[in-house]
Design a binder for these strands. Structure first.
Lengths: 206, 206
DNA sequence: CAATCCGGCGTACAACTGTACACTTAACTA
DNA sequence: TAGTTAAGTGTACAGTTGTACGCCGGATTG
């Protein structure tokens, strides 16, 4: 059974999610979205909102999950491209920025709301970003002979730089964002090379 | 003339500023402060607020200026300590984290509101952070033979890492924040060494 | 077919928001 | 000392918010 009712419910649920995302602009963070405005944009009565979420916070957590999905897509795509093209840093940055701009609203949520909202919300976002760090750490552990702490420090540094650049690029004209991308690539090279050099030196000394 | 009236005015102005700062918590960003609540905490009638600021936004910009002052104090102190103790990275991190915790609310504003509010507000914060980057760039240009672009990329990387760690540390238990600090120091070393190595190589190739 | 379920609606209410306006009253000025 | 200035007050209003409650009507179930 298709469940005509269930289908309709899912449809308006999605409408709510999209309404919320569409209202996340540079000026308008999640914490000042109003249930009523979201409902209005979704085309439902304010009270109907409760048929789907008990809370704005619950909506928020759902949105964060959505982010997680997008991030994992991003990682898969980046990996595939790297396998084909090599050039890890360039490809990663290129892919990340592409995703950032294609899913601007989702990334706005992830990048901007990672601090300054409810604990549950913040934790959920941190979890997603940490997942990203952990994946990268594993990758580094496989591709090199770093110990775990070093790999993690390096991964965290990379992720921090990339996500910050992503947040900045969200509302920047194309020209400036190209410069920023180039700078980001240099910074990533700095930190990757630096980690390698320091690691090698420590090995020789040890 | 001392200006008894002017003195009193300045006093309540400060009361407003402090009230606003005291309401900036981990959960409660600037954009959801209310004029009335701020006025209440400052001990004045809501409408009296307008005798000092035309807007919440104007208050916000004032707070950002306050941040600028604090940041400059921070830089002075860091420089002095570095002159005495050497160990640039450790001293800087130590000093930055000290300031972060002593002026938690001011840094909360700076670190968390840097995206997700009004344009004027965001720009003001970016200006302060850029000032920081520029100072560091100048320092690097004096202490080394980097070209400007390289120095700037390096400075930006450093500032990004430090400020992000600062934002994270704001609401972290002491134990975890010590670990985070150590990781930050390693990351800074990575990027500094990496920049040096790459620069040297480029010079030899050139 | 009859009974039930349930997504969506409209009304209603209390709480809160920003701010316009007219006022008091203490400090300043001439 | 008389007149003016301006910080602070209280009242008032229109707008918004979240949400409790009861109802409708089509889908689902037996």
């Amino acid at each position: 059974m298709a469940g005509a009712r269930a289908i309709q419910k899912e449809k308006t649920r999605q409408a709510i999610i999209e309404a919320a995302l569409s209202q996340l602009t540079a000026e308008h963070g999640f914490s000042n979205l109003s249930l009523r405005e979201v409902a209005r944009e979704a085309g439902i009565a304010p009270t109907s909102f409760y048929r789907h979420f008990s809370d704005m916070e619950e909506l928020g957590l759902t949105l964060v999950d959505e982010c997680g999905v997008t991030l994992r897509q991003l990682m898969r795509k980046a990996r595939k491209r790297i396998e084909k093209k090599g050039s890890i840093i360039n490809t990663s940055v290129e892919t990340f920025m592409e995703f950032t701009q294609q899913n601007a609203n989702i990334f706005r949520l992830l990048l901007r709301e990672r601090s300054g909202t409810s604990t549950a919300f913040r934790d959920a976002i941190l979890r997603e970003i940490n997942h990203f760090k952990d994946e990268l750490t594993d990758y580094l552990l496989n591709e090199s002979d770093y110990d775990h702490d070093t790999a993690y420090a390096l991964a965290e540094g990379l992720v921090t730089l990339v996500f910050n650049a992503g947040a900045d690029v969200l509302d920047l004209p194309a020209k400036k964002s190209r410069l920023l991308k180039q700078r980001l690539i240099r910074q990533l090279q700095f930190i990757v090379i630096g980690a390698a050099v320091i690691h090698k030196k420590e090995q020789n000394d040890g």
